[in-house]
Write a protein that binds this DNA or RNA. Structure first.
Lengths: 300, 300
DNA sequence: GCAATTCAATTCATTTATGAATAATTAACA
DNA sequence: TGTTAATTATTCATAAATGAATTGAATTGC
């Protein structure tokens, strides 16, 4: 049996007319009328006599008012208790993410989050280090690999399609490599202490040493600026390259595996409404971004 | 607040998983999941931790279970009272009974009831569990003991004469016990988790442990089939044994107390014409059955 | 007797909820 | 370290519920 019908029944019983009861419940008169019809059909009893003066309780209807009131009372107790438990949405959520994600993906998403949940304070911690969620360096981490830490809740939310890119100034001067052999003889932009790129290339069957990269930086933003400036060939997410004047994709045939985007949080997610809201919002909004495929247009 | 969400909340809290609770409520798992999400959003509290092992109540969720139960109880009272007001003869009567009674006694009786009262829809719920008449799991319960629940109307309608039986194949191979001492050394068919038989034997002054039963099942119908198949010695109602080829009663001297057959219904339902008809019919027709004495002929 | 008023009932376009199928996730186990 | 089984989450086409506007009906007031 539909419990809401009992509430509707009581409202009509106490207000006398459908219109008044509907206004009281904040629903429309036709809906309320249908509720009464449905309840009567369900239980097989005519509860109201419909008359010119509104809805008058029948004898069986009258006998049910007390039960409905008791149910209402329990519903009120439930709401009251629930209200006492309300977890404050206000407070801070610390989010950590790689530099690239912090710089190029999160800002608009976080702006929308701040807008949607004004009570939540947001702290963004750009960092390439693997933050420790358990020690609460951050509440939510956005990572490009599947988190392995115990007691961490993780969800994959999207993928970052990657490609090999260079500026056309560079290509004019040094030529466009057509094979990986040619590619390896070019001026490559690499990372210094991080093995991100070297490991990624090994997965593609290309063995590279640090020395083979002509220019190196561990700062991902600077890395991308170097490529944009024509300093050499580098790897970048499609969405970064989209709409950048002069940036050309090369070696289309070499499939670079997309980087997964994982959201991770600690167990407190399960009980903290604030973190959960932020987590859900990030999941939905990052998922909705077109990050997987190469974007050929970048109209905003 | 949507009252139905409270019912969904309670179902999940009591069943532990969305799927089980959904089956219990007769709705789908995705719908139930959305109900929980909606309730959490409504009241601003995370009620469950979603894990691989199902939905675990959080601290605030736990504190709301009692209120939800109280609301459920009031909803039950409402629907009970409503059912009592039904004057129409047409409608459904839910009858619950033990497996043995459901399988071997009720079918012909219910067939006659359906014939005599064609407007009444009959639902038979075979179950060895003690159904809760207050929550309207059933309108009428047929039980082998005196019901103790409050506000329940109970009538004893007959008695089930019991005896000790075995198949002659079994007796040929293992001999026929003449005393309870011999009896205890035989292959006995018993019940697994139910204490029905062990308790019954204790009342006869025989102490038995579960291990002493060579074959055990909690399914009463399977129990009787085991005895019929010559798997061992068991207890059975005389009427079951009557006319079964090869089945022999043993230990005639050991008087096993007859099991009473009680009909139970709820006070509120005594005003329902339909349930009253069904109740009266069952009373008269079960009472008329020759269940007390051992029947030496089984002519139909 | 006639209009005005006050209700419930109906209609229909829209919104919302639902469920079947499927995906994703994870804890235990081999 | 993978596999399996159990569970929650998502997707999308469909069904159901909803409400604005309207109609219909009946009583009141003049």
């Amino acid at each position: 049996m539909d419990w809401n019908l009992v509430r509707s029944f009581l409202a009509v019983a106490e207000n006398g007319t459908l219109a008044a009861a509907a206004a009281h419940l904040g629903i429309s008169q036709p809906t309320l009328g249908r509720h009464i019809d449905a309840l009567e059909r369900d239980i097989g009893v005519v509860l109201f006599a419909r008359g010119r003066r509104g809805m008058t309780l029948t004898e069986p209807g009258l006998s049910l008012v007390d039960e409905a009131r008791a149910m209402q009372a329990e519903a009120d107790r439930f709401s009251l208790k629930a209200a006492g438990n309300v977890q404050a949405l206000s407070g801070t959520v610390r989010i950590t993410a790689s530099e690239i994600v912090s710089t190029y993906i999160l800002p608009p998403v976080l702006a929308r989050l701040a807008n949607a949940e004004p009570e939540i304070q947001i702290e963004l911690v750009p960092s390439n280090m693997v933050e420790n969620l358990l020690s609460r360096d951050a509440d939510i981490a956005v990572r490009m690999f599947r988190p392995v830490q115990n007691d961490v809740i993780a969800r994959k939310t999207n993928e970052l399609g990657m490609g090999t890119y260079a500026h056309e100034d560079y290509l004019r001067r040094f030529g466009t490599p057509q094979t990986t052999q040619e590619f390896m003889r070019h001026r490559l932009v690499g990372m210094d202490r991080s093995n991100l790129i070297i490991d990624g290339m090994r997965n593609l069957g290309i063995t590279a040493l640090r020395d083979q990269f002509a220019i190196r930086t561990d700062d991902q933003v600077a890395y991308w600026e170097l490529v944009k400036a024509g300093a050499g060939i580098g790897f970048a997410a499609h969405f970064l390259a989209a709409g950048q004047p002069g940036i050309r994709r090369i070696l289309h045939d070499v499939e670079i595996p997309a980087l997964p985007i994982w959201l991770a949080s600690h167990q407190e997610l399960k009980t903290s409404l604030r973190i959960r809201r932020a987590m859900d919002f990030l999941y939905q909004n990052i998922k909705a971004l077109p990050l997987k495929q190469e974007q050929h247009v970048a109209n905003e």
